[in-house]
Design a protein around this nucleic acid. Sequence first.
DNA 1: ATAATTATATAGACTGGTCTATATAAATCA
DNA 2: TGATTTATATAGACCAGTCTATATAATTAT
Lengths: 198, 198
Amino acid sequence: MPAKPKHRDRIVRTAARLFRRDGYAATGTNEIVAASGAPKGSLYHYFPRGKAEIAEAAVSYAGGLVSATLTELAAKHAHPADIVRAYGALLAGWLAKSGFRDGCPITTTLLELAPSERGVTKAGKAAFGTWVDVFTASLRAAGARKASAERLARTAIAAFEGAMILARVEQGPGPIEDVATEIARLFELSTQPQMSLI
Amino acid sequence: MPAKPKHRDRIVRTAARLFRRDGYAATGTNEIVAASGAPKGSLYHYFPRGKAEIAEAAVSYAGGLVSATLTELAAKHAHPADIVRAYGALLAGWLAKSGFRDGCPITTTLLELAPSERGVTKAGKAAFGTWVDVFTASLRAAGARKASAERLARTAIAAFEGAMILARVEQGPGPIEDVATEIARLFELSTQPQMSLI
DNA sequence: ATAATTATATAGACTGGTCTATATAAATCA
DNA sequence: TGATTTATATAGACCAGTCTATATAATTAT
């Protein structure tokens, strides 16, 4: 037995991956155990509240990954429109790599469990919140008006969420590319001094 | 025995409702039978390919409802920005009425089944396609450039899809309102003669 | 026109399997 | 030694789909 737990993280990461592909209800605990190499007993030891608790941890974990990615992009790009374009390119690449079988790592789970599972709902809200914050900060720094920065940021996150769904259904990157183009344009228009007055 | 079938439509409508709330995998055939009042035998009589075939029918049905709604809005409003605002208000109202427990009637099912279930995927693609067509036509009529009309339309559908997810997680209409505001603005800017040249 | 046959829709019990979670004991670690 | 982690058989609920049977309308044959 290891000095430090080695299975908990694996359970979470594996669950996030499996939930992303087929959703929460279609992914059984035995499948998570088999795919992660974790013992069945450990699963309920670490997550005594059961499967929903695993979902909560998976949403937090996956949401944090996206947040880190967005933060990294924000550090590289001064303008929010450039972040949008870069993020769009990343998303298109990820989905293409999965053969357009994956989507946003937290969406399917949230659609199945929110708002009835409180913990999962809260984890999802926090995840989306941090993503919106990254864009809001960048938009503010680029000159967007305070009243519209958060609205714009939320629109961008929502648009990318929807674009990933469309991309999966259409089995191609088109929707993500379209959203990236139009949201980047909207951001540019919203951060120009004269347009900001509209 | 009735000369004419009475259960098939009920099965489809009920399935669409139940899938929308908790998703496909978490909704059992027995639950659909109980909620629709249809006999179990009838369920497999009408859908010999099984549960996925029901999902396919449910997606087609629900997608058609949204399509009819959008077409109605397009007939009432000349400008696409007004359609966006009206649709946003409708969505916010529907979700509020469900206590923010519902979302888009086809999204959860699609996220669980696309692209592995071909029929469902195809039905979803068709549904999204008709929704995009409504906005594209309106944008074109309002003066948007051909090259961007479909891109804008797709962005709008994607943004509303994402907004419904955020609204459900946040338990409030904020994201839908934000998206409606910003996409309407984007549409206005994209249908003005001088802005269309950007 | 009548009887026989076919087709359709309904009804619900049943099947073999999977699900989540628990209990309890054993193994390992510090 | 006590705390932590693992192992695994089992319980009870639920799963999607199958099966047998019936009622009745429509079709076909005589």
